[in-house]
Computed example of a mutant assay.
Amino acid sequence: SWSSPFVQRFAEIPVDRREDALRRWSRETMLPPLRLFFLLVKVFCLYVFYSWVSRARTPTD
C-alpha cells in the first residue's frame, strides 16, 4: 500500500496533534455560517416538498 510522509490517516496521527487539530477545526470561523446556510436550505427544501398538495379529483374530471 502506498503511503506518504506528509499525508497520514487521522488515526495514525499522535493523540496530542489530533487534539490540536480538533481544537483548530472547532474554532473555524466559516463553520457556523456554513452550517446555518445548509440548515436553511434543508428547511426550505422540506417546506417545498411537504407543502405540495395534489389537486383533489372531482367526479366531473
Score class of each variant (00 low, 15 high):
residue 2 W to V: 13
residue 3 S to V: 05
residue 3 S to N: 14
residue 4 S to G: 05
residue 4 S to D: 11
residue 6 F to M: 12
residue 6 F to Q: 14
residue 6 F to P: 04
residue 11 A to Y: 01
residue 11 A to F: 02
residue 11 A to C: 06
residue 11 A to L: 06
residue 12 E to M: 08
residue 12 E to F: 03
residue 12 E to Y: 03
residue 12 E to D: 15
residue 13 I to P: 01
residue 14 P to S: 10
residue 15 V to H: 13
residue 15 V to E: 15
residue 15 V to Y: 12
residue 16 D to M: 07
residue 16 D to L: 08
residue 16 D to S: 13
residue 17 R to I: 04
residue 17 R to G: 01
residue 19 E to G: 01
residue 20 D to H: 12
residue 20 D to W: 08
residue 23 R to E: 05
residue 23 R to L: 09
residue 23 R to H: 05
residue 23 R to N: 04
residue 23 R to S: 07
residue 24 R to A: 14
residue 24 R to P: 03
residue 25 W to Q: 12
residue 26 S to F: 05
residue 26 S to E: 13
residue 27 R to S: 13
residue 28 E to T: 01
residue 28 E to P: 02
residue 29 T to N: 11
residue 30 M to Y: 04
residue 30 M to A: 10
residue 31 L to P: 04
residue 32 P to G: 06
residue 32 P to T: 00
residue 32 P to H: 03
residue 33 P to N: 02
residue 33 P to A: 01
residue 33 P to S: 03
residue 34 L to I: 03
residue 36 L to M: 04
residue 36 L to I: 00
residue 37 F to G: 06
residue 37 F to K: 06
residue 37 F to A: 13
residue 38 F to H: 09
residue 38 F to Y: 09
residue 39 L to M: 11
residue 40 L to R: 01
residue 41 V to N: 05
residue 41 V to L: 13
residue 42 K to V: 00
residue 42 K to Y: 01
residue 43 V to I: 10
residue 44 F to K: 02
residue 44 F to D: 08
residue 45 C to F: 02
residue 46 L to F: 15
residue 46 L to P: 05
residue 47 Y to W: 11
residue 47 Y to T: 09
residue 47 Y to C: 11
residue 47 Y to E: 06
residue 48 V to H: 06
residue 49 F to W: 08
residue 49 F to E: 02
residue 50 Y to D: 01
residue 50 Y to F: 15
residue 50 Y to A: 08
residue 51 S to T: 11
residue 51 S to Y: 04
residue 51 S to L: 05
residue 52 W to I: 15
residue 52 W to P: 01
residue 52 W to Y: 12
residue 53 V to G: 08
residue 53 V to S: 12
residue 54 S to N: 07
residue 54 S to A: 10
residue 54 S to F: 05
residue 55 R to K: 14
residue 55 R to M: 14
residue 56 A to P: 08
residue 56 A to I: 06
residue 56 A to H: 07
residue 58 T to A: 09
residue 58 T to F: 11
residue 58 T to V: 08
residue 60 T to C: 07
residue 60 T to G: 02
residue 61 D to M: 06
residue 61 D to E: 11
